[in-house]
Structures are given as C-alpha cells and as structure tokens.
Design a binder for these strands. Sequence first.
RNA 1: GCGCCUGUAGCUCAGAUGGAUAGAGCUACGGACUUCUAAUCCGUAGGCCGGGGGUUCGAAUCCCUCCAGGCGCGCCA
Length: 528
Amino acid sequence: MHIGHLRNSVLGDTVARVFKWLGYSTEVCNYIDDTGVQVVDVVTALLYLDPPFFKEGASDFKSIWEKIPKDQPFDYFCWDLYARFQGEVEKDPSLKERREEILHQIEGEQPPVAIFAKDLATRIVQSHLETVAQLSIFYDLLNWESDIIHQGFWGATFEILKERGGLRFETEGPNKGCWVVPFGGIVETSDGVKSLDKILVRSNGSVTYTGKDIAYQLWKFGLLKKDFLYQTWGKQANGEELWTTDKDGQPRDRLLKQFGNADRVINVIDVRQSYPQEVVSECLRQMGFEKEAERSIHLAYEVVNLSPQAAHVLGSEETEEKRSVAMSGRSGTGVKAKDFIEMVKKKVVEKAGHPLEESVSNALASAAIRYYLLKFTLESQIVFDFDEALKTTGDTGVYLEYAHARACSILRKAEERKIIFHWGKEAVPAQLTETERDLMEVLSRFNSVVVRTGKNLRMSQLTEYAFNLATSFTNFYEHPDPGSDVQTPFIHLQDENLRTFRLSLVRAFQIVMGNMLRLMGMPTLERI
RNA sequence: GCGCCUGUAGCUCAGAUGGAUAGAGCUACGGACUUCUAAUCCGUAGGCCGGGGGUUCGAAUCCCUCCAGGCGCGCCA
C-alpha cells in the first residue's frame, strides 16, 4: 500500500464523513481483489522462489509461513517479494508455468492453495487496515472478489444482461467468441484495428474485471437476486464492528443486518478507471436501471506520482527528463503508506522543540497527512515531494490543529481564572473590529460549505475553508484591535461585555473548527 | 486517430453557480516572543492567469483554435 492508495482511502473516508454529517445513512465498502495477479504472484513467489519449496500435494504450509520474517510488516515483505518476483519470472520460464497453475487453483477455489491464498490476502488486508486506522479510516464491510465469484453474482448478472439486451455474442471479428457490450464498434487507430466494445466474457468463458464490477454494482443497489454471506471481522478502533463477506458466513437476514440496497453509490476510484466505470453505468442503463445508472457516481481523482527527486531517492532510474514518475508495484518504486506516516511523525517531533506525547505526535501526523491528501483538487495530480509533503508550517493540517488547540487553551485559561461568560446579544459591541467581523463572517459559512461539498464531492473545499477559518481566528487572536498598539489578551479584558463577546467568539471557533476537523477525519487536540 | 484532464508568482497550489484592485503557502529579505501557545503574526519583493481569437456591461472562469504536458481507448486487474 503506497501513498496513492492513501489518497483513495482518505478521500473515500472524508466523503463518508460529510454524508453522515448531512444525515445520510452511509455504508463504506472496501473491495478486496483477492483473485487478481498480485495475489497470484505473491503466492507463487512464496511457494516457489526460495527454499523450502512447496511440495505438490502437500497440505501443510507451516514451513512456508516460517519463511516470513518477523521484523517487518507483512505487507512490506509482500511488496518486496512481488517486485522481486517480476524480475525472476522473466528469467525463469518454469516460474511462469507455476504462476499459471496457481492462478487456476485460486480461480477454481481448489484447496489447499486457494485456502493459502485467502489466508495470505487476509493477512495483507489486516496489515492495510492497521495502516489506514492510524489515519482514522474505518470501513463497514469488506467485499471479497472471490465471494462475488463464489456466490454466482456473475451468472445472475449475465442472465439479466442477456434478457434485457445490451449484450452481444461475437461470431466474427477481433472479439470472436466473446460476450461484449456494444460501445462504439470497430475503429481504426494508429496501432491497428481495434474494437471499442467492452468484453465481459472472454472466449475461454472467464469473466473480465468489468463484468464482475457490473455484478458488484448491481449488488450495491440491491438489484441482484444473489447475496453474499457475512461474518464479523472484528471491532475497529472507532468502536464500530467491521463486517466481511465470507463464503462460510451467515445470510444477512439471519444477522439482522442491512448491506447494500443503496439508492446512491459513490465509487472512489482513480481517473484511469473512467472508461470502465462508464461501461458499468452504461450497462445498468441498458439493463433498464436508468435511475441507478444516474446514481452511479464515479468519484474520479488524479493519481499520486513522484517528483523526480523523490523517485531518485527511492532508487528509480527513469527520472531524467520527466516531471513526475509513476509509482509502480512491479518495480517496487513507491512511497509506502506506513513509511510516510512514520516520516511525518518524526518531522513533527523534530519541529516541536519540546517533548511530545506519542498521542499528540500521532494526531499531528495524521492531520498533516490527511490535509495534504485532501487539499488538492480531484483533477490535480499530486506530484509527491518529500519537502512539500513533510511541511508543518503554513497551509497544513498542523496549522489547523494549532489554531484549534490555541482556542482550547484560551478557554481553559479562562476557566482556571474562574471567568464565567454567557453569550448574549448585549455583549455584542456597537462597533465590531475588522478581525472580529471577519471571523464571524467565516464562521457563518460553515453550513453552506459542508452542504456544497456534499453536492459537488470536492473535498478540497473543506481544507480550503478550514484554512481560511483558522487564519481568521489567528488574525483575530493576534490583532483583536487592529491598528491599536496594544492587543489585550481576552482573559485580561476589563470590559466584561467585550470579554464575554470575544471569549464567545473563541468558543464558537473552537466548536466549528472541531466540527471541521472531525469532518476531515482529523483528531481534535486540546493542547500541543 | 478518438476521448477525458491539466497549464495561474521562482516553487506547490486555491480561485462553486462569469463580478470590483487575481489569492494563499513555501522560498528570499526586514521586523514582532519575560504572551490567552511564535508550528504564529506584520511588512517588502514577486503575475499578459500557456498563445491567439470570440461571446459579454464585465472572462482565470463560457465558446473556437493553436501550443505544451498527463491519462484512457487490453480476451490486464
């Protein structure tokens, strides 16, 4: 899991928080691609790359599990192994054959390899969930691709598609023997004749990713006769139960749980998936699910790339002449999510100038990272650079936390001095100062900003507003009486009405800023 | 070839439904801490909003065109 995946997780989690705030009931699903090439490659590598090798027909994987080092996170080990395997498989054709065998066994759900693969995927997922939990990211349900296959989702989808039209069996042309969705026909391009039609079933009878995705989308809307079986995964740090699909689980009516049946679906997937996502909603439309197609929203965001300097640091060679370098699991170049979190934590501690409690440095790092990943617009490619990403001053999450903590400190000091204040109209001065007026104006925009963000799904508008809010507060704090030579601390004000007014503004800020931080999934620190 | 996206200060980016003198952070330089928290604040410097044309009382924003860059158009996932 690298920082690109982190952008996805942070965006999705924030969208969910906004909708919850707006009163919608939300369900956050995490799709686990446990039958894809990555898992197949790692399984093959684990069984056949280093001794002791897996013996055909054996059912005991103890010696295989023992190969895994204990001194690093499991997903790190898999990351390196996967990258290494890409090189090895080029050199050794027998590994290619092994990979084919593994693929078939996993697809065919044949024990013991399929069970081993599932165990392996489970451990990786566990590791990823631990990582994102550090950024307060939680889910409601894990949806396993293997369960989509196992429960026969595709069969049911295939029937509907055939019934309602919109699916065609090709008897000639480049897609001969495939079931396709007509999506533009044959086109001549610079590199030969191509079909724009989307293949859902290959000529060998297997289903493509898009095919499964259509089935999954139907399930999300409750349009499929089929359903998963479910099981609890465990309690998360936010106190909520996480559920998972599981072929040995329980039907949902037995669990008295509600999954799927959405009336709106937001798929948070990077912009490179725009075309297949369009195919998914177009298929829904052609199946007669006009309304659901309309309410299938692809929240497309640009990818995270590496700056040439960052790529160089990570040992990538293709840095020259490029503005940005794509991260690649195959070559193993990428900033790992856990590393990034640790780096920011270290930076925060360095910058503090005084000892920080672990919980505070964790909180600051979390705020800094979420802010950094949210503040870019969806269309903006993040060119990751270490200096830029590790900033703790200015337009950062740390600034927000600091402003919030400062407000808390003022209120705490006021309480210590036994200053009691109650908001009342009579406390409002006849003439507001510029910074007072500005802060009140920004505070009043909170609701409309959240509503707007819920409509346009542009989470960067939250960070933008939060930064304006924090700036207005800081200005008010530094210059409550702009133009005057002396700025009297609020708690020292002699004029009781003015003191009440300004402390009330501090409290209002503290409440609104706290709401903003929670909306963006950032901790609310009372002191730093 | 077709489609989508991007181009705003030295750097990284905001500018929702067209609106006044285009904003912020970083960087550079100069200032302000025995304080309600200086991870802050104030000041200076920095712009033909990629180029050209159009619509409009008014364009960074809408339309056309050109230039530059990224992505997509797999019987990969």
